[in-house]
Design a protein around this nucleic acid. Structure first.
Lengths: 211, 211
DNA sequence: TAGATTGTTAATCGATTAACAATC
DNA sequence: TAGATTGTTAATCGATTAACAATC
C-alpha cells in the first residue's frame, strides 16, 4: 500500500516476484519471503526488504497472502494502468517484440509500428500494419503514447530517437547498440545485448575449459 | 595490457566504448577519456578509470591512440576468440537473434538453432536449418559450444536449461521471463525485458503527464 | 506460551565520485 | 616550462547483508 524509497535494483526485481507468484497462486494461497527467495534463488533478507517496501501486508508466522501480494505488486508496477507505446523499426527484433504478448501483463500496449523504409511500411507485423514515419506524430497524439521503442539498426537510432522526442515521448526503450542523446527529462533504458554478452564471455574465458 | 580488478559494471560498459571507438576511428586517431565521456554521456572520471583498468596505454596530454585502445578492448573482451553457442527456441525472438549479425563483432557464433516442436524443426531460420532437440548433444560436442541461448516461452525454459547443462554448457543467456535453477558452476545472464519495462513505466507514471 | 516470520536499524560491501600526484 | 591529461589514493554514496526487536 505505502511505497517507501524503492531502489532501482529493487524495482527491477519486482516483476520477477510478480511473475513467479502468478504462476503458483492457485496451489500456494500464502507464501513467506523465505519461500519466495528459495524459489527464485535469491537471499531471503533481500526479498523481505523488497516486498516490505511495496506491500507491508505480511503477517508474522504466516507470511503473505499470495493474492494480496500480487495485487500490491501490480498496483505498484502500474500493471493495470494502460501504457500505450509506439515502436520504430519493424525488422526481426521489432516483429519479435510486437508478437510477444507477455507485455500486456505489465500494461504495455504497442499501439503501432513504424519503419523508415518504404518497402517495409505497409507490410504486416503480427496483427498490425507497419506505418510510414510520416504518421508518427498523429499516432502519438491520438494514442497519448509517451513511450517509444527503438528497434532499428544502430545507424538510424539517433534519428528515430529525435523523432520520438519531438512527438512528446518521454521514455525510450532502446534496443540499438548506441548511446542516444536526449534532453534531460527523457529517460532512456538501454537493452544492451553486447553488455550481457561481455559478462557471459568473461565467465567462459575464465572458468570454462577453453574449447 | 594488464587487467586489474574490473568490476562487473565496468565490464558492461566496455562494449559501449568499443562500439563508439570503432565508429569514429577513421576521423579520430587519438581520443581522451574526457572526449569519450562527452560522446557517451558518461562521467569523465568513470571512463578514465574503466579504460585504465583494461588498457593503461593512455598518455598524459595526448590521451589514447584510438586504434591501440580498440585492440586493448577487443583483447580484454575476447572479441577475437571465437565463442560458439547454441540457441534453443526458433520463435520470433530466436530468429531475430539468429539473423542479427552484430554479435560477430564480439566473437559470438551461433552454430545451430534447436526447437522442441517438430513443426518448427526442419524449417529455415536465417541461413540455418532448425534442428530437433535430439541433435543437441552431438552439436555441442562437435562444436565445443559452452554457451547456450534460451529463447523459448517461459514454460519450457527450465527444461531447455537442463538439457543445455547436461550437454556441458556453462553459461546461459536467458531471454525467458523465468528464474532458472542451475548448478553453481553455471552462469545465467537474464535478459529481463520486464525489469526494463518496470523502470520505464515508473518514470512515466512519476514524471509523465499521465495520458 | 513458543516459534516462525516480519520489518527495522546498524554494519558491510562494492561502486562511483572527488581530490591529487605523476608525466608527457 | 606550463598545461593538459592520465592514473591513483581517499571520500562518498548506494545497495546488500546481518543483527535484532516486534508480532501474530
Amino acid at each position: 500500500m505505502k511505497a517507501k524509497n524503492v531502489s532501482i535494483q529493487t524495482l527491477r526485481r519486482l516483476p520477477l516476484y510478480l511473475h513467479y507468484l502468478k504462476s503458483v497462486k492457485s496451489e500456494t494461497p500464502t507464501i513467506s519471503a523465505t519461500m519466495l527467495a528459495e524459489a527464485l534463488g535469491a537471499g531471503d533478507v533481500q526479498v523481505r526488504k523488497d516486498l516490505g517496501s511495496v506491500s507491508g501486508n505480511g503477517r508474522p508466522k504466516k507470511g503473505y497472502v499470495t493474492e494480496e501480494l500480487i495485487v500490491d505488486l501490480e498496483d505498484y508496477l502500474g500493471c493495470n494502468d494502460r501504457t500505450p507505446a509506439v515502436l520504430i523499426g519493424a525488422g526481426n527484433l521489432g516483429r519479435a517484440l510486437l508478437s510477444y504478448n507477455g507485455f500486456s501483463d505489465y500494461g504495455l500496449e504497442i499501439v503501432a509500428a513504424f519503419d523508415a523504409s518504404d518497402a517495409v511500411a505497409g507490410t504486416k507485423a503480427g496483427d498490425k500494419t507497419v506505418l510510414p514515419m510520416s504518421k508518427l506524430k498523429k499516432v502519438c497524439e491520438d494514442s497519448g503514447a509517451k513511450l517509444g521503442i527503438i528497434t532499428v539498426p544502430a545507424a538510424g537510432a539517433q534519428d528515430a530517437c529525435d523523432k520520438l522526442v519531438s512527438c512528446g515521448v518521454t521514455a525510450i526503450w532502446n534496443f540499438a547498440p548506441t548511446v542516444l542523446k536526449v534532453p534531460p527529462e527523457v529517460l532512456v533504458e538501454n537493452e544492451n545485448l553486447a553488455s550481457s554478452l561481455a559478462v557471459l564471455s568473461k565467465h567462459l574465458s575464465e572458468n570454462g575449459a577453453a574449447r
